[in-house]
């Protein structure tokens, strides 16, 4: 992942202000965001606490549950496992970035609503973003392939059957079916 400031000397640390914070520039949902954070803060902490994008949630905190899923250059990653400083120079997408210009739901979101692919919805942003990456990678994905790809997203309500129904419907919607 790339550094923020190409003019900074290769062997100097990132400058820290009086509060022990560094300056960060992140590209989130098509916007350039400037913010300050502690050097060890994770992308998840920065998204929630500095940018107030609270769709990504902390679940397990160790990369196993998928509640904090964020797309980095279109690929799902765990926001809880990435220092925010390493997210610079990449295109980030959170669930807030999926809606259309007038607040329309994304076709994947519509499919999840139609099939009630959730109960409490804590895991839902992560599932929807992972579904987006999956369908961009494999537009003709089978139900079994989707099951394997989504195995790292946990739904403690156990809505898996309806989630998979939603994914298959989203596939058909995006294929223009």
């Amino acid at each position: 992942m790339t550094a923020a400031d190409p003019s900074a000397p290769s062997t100097s640390p990132r400058p820290v202000d009086g509060e022990g914070k560094i300056s960060l520039t992140l590209h989130v949902n098509g916007r350039e965001e400037h913010l300050r954070a502690r050097p060890h803060h994770t992308l998840l902490e920065v998204l929630r606490n500095e940018l107030h994008l609270t769709g990504a949630r902390e679940g397990c905190g160790v990369g196993m549950c998928g509640a904090c899923t964020v797309l980095l250059d279109g690929r799902p990653i765990s926001g809880c496992l990435l220092p925010a400083a390493l997210a610079e120079g990449h295109e980030l997408t959170t669930i807030e970035g999926l809606e259309g210009p007038n607040g329309e739901l994304h076709p994947i979101q519509e499919a999840y609503v139609e099939h009630t692919g959730f109960q409490c919805s804590y895991c839902t942003p992560g599932f929807i973003l992972t579904t987006k990456a999956l369908l961009e990678e494999r537009p003709d994905v089978s139900r079994d392939e989707a099951k394997a790809y989504l195995a790292g997203n946990l739904c403690r309500c156990g809505s898996y059957v309806k989630i998979l129904d939603s994914v298959m419907d989203a596939r058909d919607r995006l294929r223009g079916g």
């Binding site: 820290v16 022990g20 060890h40």
Partner: peptide
């Protein structure tokens, strides 16, 4: 977590090793 964490982005292996 520690407050003073120096974050480096070296652009060459030599700098990183240094």
């Amino acid at each position: 977590m520690p407050g003073s964490l120096a974050f480096y982005h070296p652009t060459t292996l030599e700098d990183a090793i240094g």
